[in-house]
Design a protein around this nucleic acid. Structure first.
Lengths: 226, 226
DNA sequence: CGCGACGATGAAAAATTCATGATGGGGACG
DNA sequence: CGTCCCCATCATGAATTTTTCATCGTCGCG
């Protein structure tokens, strides 16, 4: 079995590395997120063990990036804390399983093997995000609501991408401004409002179930799948 | 280690039961959800292995009910399919881990032991705050009382967030004013009273057990979990 | 039992927050 | 160089929240 280990802490990396080799698995270590993403491109790994805390980017980003590239290699996340949010976020960004530090090496092994076993049965294709009948294909950069294809401008798409990445979750205007426009301040503009209105016009055509909700006093969100 | 196994399918139950006993663990089998909840009350178990598909109620309900009763025994869920939704929902209702059928018995064992080990260290905190059947999800900015979702305005939410952060503790009007409004003085207003009244109207609907208490001469508090 | 302080609450007024149409700049492309 | 599309800002009106104010209720104590 061929394992890609993305972990920047030498001690931890070493520990896992040696353990896996002892089990006759092939191991490649990446000590940063970007290195991990690059190495993963070769597509030769059976499973990726991914630490959440990396020097250059967060584990979620690595995960998300891989999935966006159409890579479906099973990912086992190592979370530092036992935070529910981390687990959920991990699963949502495309991880297949998580493991909380500190962990038994045997457990790591067991889960890895389980993942690989499972992934050989069927490969769930993703890269397609979806809420209700609203579908965003990040590969084709295409948006559909039901059978209708919707044409979005760059900014509109960026907002939708952000919102759909965590359905149900509320995003503040500031947050959206940050992610989509890259501003770090300027609360004197209402661009976000304007663009939300445009998105609405395209996505929530009258008669349809409204998906794009305003949460007064907080921001906007995409309706969570019930 | 003492295990409560909630599983109605005799074949699966038997398989796990025998395996665990072989490992010298104590096992009690419940073949329905309500039986499981009852048995759990004894509080003598180190971990609960919970099947999702039960004859009388869904695994989520069992899970939720236990958590509502203030039971924090680690729960390992057995999900039939590899559905992301199930995993997320499971975690949200208070499960600590999940396992997809079919699974290796060794994996079950490893995860169980990991859970128990972990739970002896510390109890996981999350973004979900709860008093009795009142739940505040800080991520979704959503409040529920039992099954009903409650819509709160920003200020109402802020107050509830403060109160629920320390159930049972009394918060003076001044304190609330400080935290929620950021005022550092001005004891000439009764906004706090007004908002408490509104919160009451939404949260403590007539017929329900009142959670929001007035402590005359001191302030307000959320009833502590008994 | 009656009084006074404290708290509850309805309703009006004020303020905030949003939605959206109109306007004009600017860049890409032919 | 003109046209088209995208982007950002502004202004306005509507919806909702927040605050204030007045009144009424209730609790505790003498």
């Amino acid at each position: 079995m061929n394992v890609l280990l993305v972990e920047d802490e030498p001690r931890v990396a070493d520990f896992i590395d040696r353990g896996l080799r002892a089990e006759n698995h092939g191991v490649t270590v990446a000590s940063s997120g970007s290195e991990g993403v690059d190495l993963a491109k070769s597509g030769e790994f059976d499973v990726i063990v991914l630490d959440l805390m990396l020097p250059d980017m967060h584990g979620y980003d690595v995960c998300q990036r891989l999935r966006l590239q159409g890579d479906h290699t099973p990912i086992l996340m190592l979370t530092a804390m036992d935070a529910l949010e981390d687990k959920i976020k991990g699963l949502k960004t495309g991880a297949d399983d998580y493991l909380t530090k500190p962990f038994d090496f045997d457990e790591l092994l067991a889960r890895m093997e389980a993942l690989v076993r499972r992934s050989h049965n069927f490969t769930p294709s993703s890269n397609i995000l979806q809420v209700a009948d609203l579908v965003l294909d990040r590969e084709l950069l295409e948006v559909r609501r039901g059978v209708d294809t919707i044409k979005l401008t760059a900014k509109e798409l960026a907002i939708l991408e952000l919102l759909i990445s965590a359905p149900g979750r509320v995003f503040s205007r500031t947050r959206i401004l940050n992610q989509v426009w890259g501003y770090s301040e300027d609360p004197l503009t209402n661009v976000v409002d304007v663009y939300i209105a445009r998105l609405r016009r395209k996505i929530d055509k009258p008669g349809r179930d409204p998906l794009l909700e305003t949460v007064r006093g907080h921001g906007y969100r995409l309706k969570a799948p019930s």
